[in-house]
């Protein structure tokens, strides 16, 4: 069942890649990228539970906090034009 969840989240990532490719402005692509990072964190967590590897859990925490950091960096760049 865990594996089904991982594959479903990856399918959602594939759907979001459409918006990443087609988005007319940069903001659309940031939204798609942020949601992609969240889904990848979920997929990582469920893959760790599926394969029974506790080392993989830290990567999920890194991804969940770094999607926030990436969104903040991108929005600051979008707002001021310079980091």
């Amino acid at each position: 069942m865990y594996l089904a969840v991982v594959i479903a989240e990856l399918a959602l990532v594939a759907i979001l890649l459409v918006r990443l490719g087609r988005g007319p402005t940069v903001s659309d692509r940031i939204v798609a990228l942020n949601t992609m990072a969240t889904q990848t964190a979920l997929a990582t967590l469920f893959f760790a539970a599926y394969a029974d590897r506790t080392v993989d859990l830290d990567v999920a925490i890194w991804l969940a906090s770094f999607s926030y950091l990436g969104a903040i960096i991108w929005s600051r760049y979008l707002e001021r034009g310079l980091l």
Partner: peptide, 26 residues
């Protein structure tokens, strides 16, 4: 696994609205 899932859930609850707000404002 459950404790790590709780940590990730807390992070998402706190950080995701903040990121959305900053993005919409920018």
């Amino acid at each position: 696994y459950g404790s790590r899932a709780l940590v990730v859930a807390g992070l998402l609850v706190i950080l995701s609205p903040t990121a959305s707000h900053a993005l919409a404002r920018a």
